[in-house]
Design a protein around this nucleic acid. Structure first.
Length: 937
RNA sequence: GCGGGUGUGGUGGAAUUGGUAGACACGCCAGACUUAGGAUCUGGUGCCGUAAGGUGUGGGGGUUCGAGUCCCUUCACCCGCACCA
């Protein structure tokens, strides 16, 4: 009768694998439910106990939905392009695919051991040419599209050509940089090259010279979300600013839709807020300031506070601003030049580091105030960002903190125009409250009214217009790396052209070394066959490049987020060779009903996926506006790191309890090197790190202790606990339930093995319910009312908990049920069988085993979830807490149907009442049916 | 600095609508049992107190018959953004 979990779990894992019962049906009359996990990058370290947290939760949900009668799509795959495999390839010369294959096998084994109900027939890998063929295909669609702002929709580039042929670009409202206007005749007169340059400006995948975050140590550029505090997120290398021509994605054109869509989806509020901040919408005005003695030139600024226009006392331009050269005077030219040079050298990190002291120089020019015609000195300063707004500001020191500091430093005028706050000579008053003063036509208006009035006036006088600005930047799309999708582009006379779709995939070529070339070009430059034969429609040797028929191919590759931005669609139709996805299949599965993953993807993956999805919708390939209807974040699991202390400037280590005033460095050591709690096994350490073989260890009583600290579980911190060890010891069902029992799914929590035995014992107890005298035996006779009550209460609780993802409370409900059924010695089939069904999503192996032993031939995975009957949830007797002035004094039982008056009477007669009443009078009695009685004195 | 989140026993946590704070589990204490099994069973366990009782959800204040829950204020920690005009 022992619960032999090893044997049981092996049997059912084998069965699930061979029977393929978790295959999502492509054509089904059942309602669909798409449950997805963020697919992992297959790193060499394998899974640790933090990974499965989300997988377990989604698996419970998927299994529950199957039992509820849904056709569930629950796939898994691998985000297999990425840096670690490439880094390893650089070091060892081994092709990244080899490393990948090994790692993926390990991951799959680990995932199977945990009993997940994945549909492995749909497994995909982003580095597989049959997959990235379609990533490249989407890229070409973006390349061949422009955004029509009047329709709020992406359209084919062929259509814009037709429009140009008819009317030039005079009427068109499209996303792109400002371009000289041209009419239809001019368009048809443009040479081929010019036409293509113009089109380039409208494409959603386009090349642009951008200031990028160049990381020489990684040999690549990084996106903003890959940088943490000025250093690369991976490896912590220094990042520099560099101008480069790069592929970009016009995500900014979708800013408004990305923002609006957030209201339609059920995501954690924190995550939505992060995206809102990242998109950073602000409303204001664009205002032109003319320049003294240069009537043809204007400085355009963006401001969210046009109400403070009469408080402007100077102007500031970003160092990259294009007008600086033209308008700075000869006297100031030298100091301006010096300043620009100096600010170029300052890395982003330095610029961010000292936000307190502002630098800048006067450039000699003056702008004219649009209303007062006052002379406003123009400065250049790197506190102005070239990439935001227009790269220039009208400075209002009285009402903007940074402008204030700048004004103080350069002794510029500070003019109050909003009433409120302290002395503006000492401190800026930034609040958007108060009435306008010294502001001509704005006087007396409050800030909100004044903003609108000012814009109205500005538009009326043609000085500018209202403007909505976004903080969101276009996404840089190229990487100077090997291990990514090749960008399907070739260059004809310097013009980028797409490889015809029929020729995809453009496969990654083999190269001798995975490093950049000596000249610093991307690794693909090393490929001998990396040229496009336009006529022959094939890849040929570089030697054949003649710029007539054979042209060089693009050598940068796509970023990590390319493949992950649409993989959820491919799972719906993974084998399709003719299309990204069949439209009928798409119409059925639509989008993801539940997406589970980490919140760290808030501004990367989750934003890019939404962007691509919206684009594909515009193109008619998908029917939904949002890819992930509901999303939950699993919390981080923290590990208990161990450190050894090294005395500074020495090779001597000191036991943590002996440290007094000495300065020490803390060095992470693998937690598996510890014994008896915090004691270090020095021999094991020396094996692990041979460089410490000769080190001296200062010990107390022959023991050496480590310092512990709870921090994020990660390979680099050597605090990783693998699920394999726990599976071996307690089984997958125990691990699954234990991880869920740890607390709310979305909360960060430390990993602690201490409580796991409780779960294991619970499963044993559950198992024993089915045994009498060492034999499997269940009664067919009707169960007691008490037993039915326990069952129905539990079913109700679980049905309420699962949709809320409150799995920790479900588990405690199971525990209560098993404890109570055990106490009344219930072994009725009528009670135990439904219990097996409802516990199956949580502990599927034991459930399958018991289900089989109960005599069923089919898997428990599709057995319908039992219904509960309210009849069994009624209590005949209610225990009322009797409170005096809100304090619980004693308890009394009453039949649930008894009326209020009767209860009050009985309570007042109770001897305890007299005691608590004393000489005081009752003011009133609060009676809440089936809850409490409170006597107010 | 801005935005978001979290604070409850020795520990993980529960309390879904303002209604018995600490469910369930770990740990600990006491006991029973013995085919010595990662056993099982019984009882106890927030804190102070022998007890009556008092006290208690980060701190302070408020609303209410009644507050972990609502409001104000304050502190600590975590996450995200950060010269965004």
């Amino acid at each position: 009768m022992n619960y032999l979990f090893r044997e049981i779990e092996k049997r059912w894992q084998k069965y699930w694998k061979s029977s393929q019962i978790f295959k999502g049906e492509t054509h089904s009359k059942k309602p669909k439910c798409y449950v997805l996990d963020m697919f992992p990058y297959p790193s060499g370290a394998g899974l640790h106990v933090g990974h499965p947290l989300g997988y377990i939760a989604s698996d419970i949900y998927a299994r529950y939905q199957r039992s509820q009668g849904y056709n569930v799509l629950h796939p898994m795959g691998f985000d297999s392009f990425g840096l670690p495999a490439e880094q390893y390839a650089i070091q060892t010369g081994q092709h990244p695919n080899v490393t990948n294959e090994t790692n993926i096998q390990r991951y799959k084994e680990q995932l199977e051991e945990l009993g997940f109900s994945f549909d492995w027939s749909r497994e995909l890998r982003t580095s597989d040419p049959s997959y990235y063929r379609w990533t490249q295909w989407i890229f070409l669609q973006l390349f061949n599209s422009w955004y029509d702002q009047s329709l709020s929709k992406a359209r084919s580039i062929d259509e814009i050509i037709k429009i140009f042929e008819k009317q030039g670009n005079l009427k068109i409202k499209a996303s792109g940089d400002k371009i000289e206007p041209f009419n239809a005749d001019q368009w048809s007169g443009f040479p081929w090259k010019r036409k293509n340059e113009i089109l380039q400006n409208y494409r959603l995948a386009f090349r642009s010279e951008t200031i990028v975050n160049w990381c020489p140590a990684l040999g690549t550029i990084l996106s903003n979300d890959e940088i943490k505090e000025g250093k690369s997120e991976r490896g912590g290398h220094t990042v520099y600013q560099k101008k480069m021509t790069q592929w970009s994605m016009r995500i900014t054109t979708y800013a408004e839709r990305l923002l609006k869509g957030l209201d339609q989806i059920q995501w954690p509020e924190a995550l939505k807020e992060t995206q809102r901040n990242w998109i950073g919408k602000s409303f204001g005005a664009k205002i032109s300031f003319s320049i003294l003695d240069k009537p043809s030139l204007n400085i355009e600024v963006f401001t969210t506070r046009p109400d403070t226009i009469f408080g402007v006392s100077f102007m500031v331009l970003a160092p990259e601003h294009s007008l600086i050269g033209e308008i700075s005077t000869s006297e100031e030219k030298k100091s301006v030049e010096e300043y620009l040079q100096a600010s170029k050298k300052r890395s982003e990190r330095e610029r961010l580091a000292d936000t307190k002291s502002l630098s800048g120089v006067f450039i000699g020019a003056y702008a004219l105030h649009p209303f007062t015609k006052e002379k406003l000195p123009v400065y250049v300063s790197d506190y102005i960002l070239a990439g935001y707004g227009t790269g220039a500001v009208m400075a209002v020191p009285a009402h903007d903190e940074r402008d204030h500091r700048f004004a103080k430093k350069f002794e510029l005028k500070i003019k109050r125009v909003i009433h409120g706050g302290d002395d503006v000579q000492k401190q800026a008053y930034e609040a958007k409250e108060g009435q306008c003063i010294h502001s001509d036509f704005l006087n007396g208006l409050n800030v909100k009214e004044a903003i609108l009035k000012a814009i109205e006036k500005i538009e009326e006088k043609k000085l500018g217009q209202r403007m909505i600005n976004y903080r969101l930047r276009d996404a840089v799309f190229s990487r100077q790396r090997y291990w990514g999708e090749p960008i399907p582009i070739y260059y004809k006379k310097g013009i980028a052209l797409g490889i015809p779709q029929e020729n995809l995939p453009l496969c990654l070529p083999d190269i001798d070394k995975y490093l950049p070339t000596e000249k610093g070009e991307p690794p693909l430059q090393r490929a001998a066959y990396w040229a496009w034969d336009e006529k022959g429609q094939k890849i040929v040797s570089n030697e054949l490049i003649d710029d007539k028929n054979v042209f060089p191919l693009e050598t940068s590759t796509m970023p990590g987020w390319a493949g992950s931005s649409w993989y959820f669609l491919r799972y719906m139709d993974p084998e399709n060779k003719d299309a990204l996805i069949n439209s009928k299949v798409e119409a059925y599965w639509q989008n993801v009903d539940l997406y589970v993953g980490g919140s760290e993807h808030a501004t990367g993956h989750l934003l890019y996926s939404r962007f691509w999805h919206k684009f594909l919708k515009d193109q008619g390939y998908v029917s939904t506006e949002e890819p992930f209807k509901k999303l939950i974040n699993q919390g981080m699991i923290l590990g208990d790191s161990a450190f050894i202390a090294r005395l500074e400037k020495s090779q001597d280590f000191i036991s943590v309890d002996l440290i007094k005033d000495q300065k020490t460095q803390q060095i992470h050591v693998d937690i598996h090197l510890l014994k008896n709690g915090n004691e270090l096994d020095i021999e094991k350490l020396k094996e692990w790190r041979p460089e410490y073989a000769q080190a001296k260890f200062i010990m107390k009583d022959g023991k050496f202790f480590c310092k512990r600290k709870v921090e994020k579980m990660s390979k680099s911190k050597y605090n990783v606990i693998n699920p394999d060890e726990i599976c071996k010891q307690y089984g997958a069902d125990t691990l699954r339930m234990y991880e869920m029992f740890l607390g709310p799914i979305d909360q960060t929590k430390p990993w602690n093995i201490r409580g796991i035995s409780g779960i294991h014992q619970f499963l044993r107890k559950f198992w024993r319910l089915f045994y009498t005298k060492e034999r499997f035996y269940v009664e067919s006779t009707p169960p007691s009312y008490e037993a039915l009550k326990i069952l129905h209460r539990t079913v109700k609780k679980i049905k309420e908990d699962i949709p809320r993802f409150s799995f920790n409370t479900s588990i405690s409900a199971f525990m209560i049920a098993v404890n109570e059924l055990n106490a009344i010695k219930c072994n009725n089939r009528e009670v135990l069988e439904p219990l097996v069904i409802i516990i199956a999503p949580f502990a599927p192996h034991i459930a399958e085993e018991l289900w089989m032993r109960l005599g069923h031939k089919n898997s428990v995975s599709f057995a319908p979830i039992p219904e509960y009957n309210e009849r069994y949830l009624m209590e005949e007797m209610i225990e009322y807490p009797i409170m005096f002035n809100g304090k619980l004094r004693f308890k009394m039982n009453f039949p649930s149907e008894i009326d209020e008056e009767n209860i009050k009477k009985t309570i007042l007669k109770h001897p305890q009442t007299e005691k608590y009443l004393g000489k005081r009078n009752i003011i009133k009695i609060i009676f809440i049916s089936k809850k409490i009685v409170n006597i107010v004195l």
